[in-house]
Write a protein that binds this DNA or RNA. Structure first.
Length: 323
DNA sequence: AAGACGGGGCT
DNA sequence: AGCCCAGTCTT
């Protein structure tokens, strides 16, 4: 849960997660829908699916117990070099390094390492260095200390060098490079896109569709039928296309209901919610599919939805089913 | 060896 | 408005 996610954010999810899945078996036995529901809003949903798969893997291969070696941990879905190093060193006292965003920063600054830490040469050097530094005695404490130093003292901006226990030997501090290191590439500015989502009405109910497991984004989550607008495409045409793509039927497109802005990894999406109805004769068959559900606005929260569609669902609930 | 994957905290 | 977060997996 903490992979690429701040502790402050995880704190809002972890207690509920542990209440719903208090054991490896509880998680392994849970339907994926429940797992995604408990994860909804956290992002990087493949983490949830891998954690789920990991629980099942543990039951099949390790009698439901976490293996105690770095090598065996690495075989688990969702456990990469960082997590295997963290668990092996912190939980089991194995002398293994770890490199997370904090460690990258601390090491790059302290040793004055130039280059992009995401690229091969420096990336390898950082793991090599971390491996040489981690001690036989209390490797977990050392690793946590390194991360904690990065999180609290050697921060991305306004580092508290005066309070740093390593200030005497820090190359970046000596050379005035603290703010320059590590040399992370700037994230490209998000591309602006317009998208339309459709609230397909069936009386007081509204249609949600579940994205297929093969979807590049939000796989397994429920959304309103939606598409990005093509160049020069009208909102209504896009809305029709969205409904046809999701349900295979033609819809009567109505008025715009709401509009939100949402930024995800590389896109800044202006997402408009448009109302629609279906001809009565196609309604029943089209909505029978397993990946389609009709729900009252008050029931939408039962389904795992990504943040932007969740916002639209909240809007629908607040602003009623006025149709 | 690059890209892709979410969403939000914090400056 | 940016930057970055206790990374992993796929292409």
């Amino acid at each position: 849960m903490l992979q690429q996610t701040q502790v402050a954010t995880v704190l809002r999810y972890f207690p509920n997660w542990m209440r719903r899945f208090p054991s490896v078996r509880a998680l392994a036995d849970a339907p994926e829908a429940d797992v995604l529901h408990a994860w909804q809003g956290l992002g990087y949903y493949s983490r949830a699916r891998r954690l789920h798969a990991g629980a099942r893997f543990l039951l099949e291969r390790h009698a439901g117990e976490l293996p105690r070696t770095h090598a065996a941990l690495l075989e688990l879905p969702g456990i990469g070099a960082y997590s295997a190093g963290a668990i092996a060193s912190i939980a089991f006292g194995e002398k293994k390094p770890l490199v997370d965003g904090n460690v990258v920063r601390v090491l790059a600054r302290h040793f004055g390492l130039r280059g992009d830490p995401g690229k091969g040469p420096l990336r390898r050097a950082l793991w090599q260095l971390a491996g040489e530094l981690v001690p036989e005695d209390r490797p977990g404490d050392f690793n946590q200390a390194l991360m904690e130093l990065g999180a609290t003292v050697c921060t991305p901006r306004a580092a508290a060098c005066g309070a740093c226990p390593l200030r005497a030997t820090c190359v970046a501090r000596r050379d005035g490079l603290v703010e320059k290191l590590p040399e992370l590439p700037a994230r490209p500015k998000p591309t602006r896109v317009r998208a339309v989502a459709v609230a397909v009405r069936d009386g007081k109910r509204v249609v949600l569709v579940r994205l297929p497991a093969s979807a590049p984004r939000w796989a397994g989550l429920w959304t309103f039928p939606h598409v990005e607008l093509e160049p020069n495409e009208t909102r209504a045409a896009a809305a029709e296309r969205a409904v046809h793509g999701a349900l295979g039927v033609k819809a009567h497109i109505g008025v715009e209901l709401a509009r939100i802005e949402h930024t995800i990894t590389r896109f800044r999406i202006a997402l408009e919610l448009v109302e629609a109805t279906l001809p009565g004769n196609v309604l029943r068959g089209a909505l029978r599919a397993e990946h389609v559900v009709r729900a009252l606005p008050s029931e939408l929260s039962r389904h795992a939805m990504p943040a932007p569609h969740r916002k639209l669902a909240v809007w629908l609930l607040a602003n009623g089913g006025a149709s």
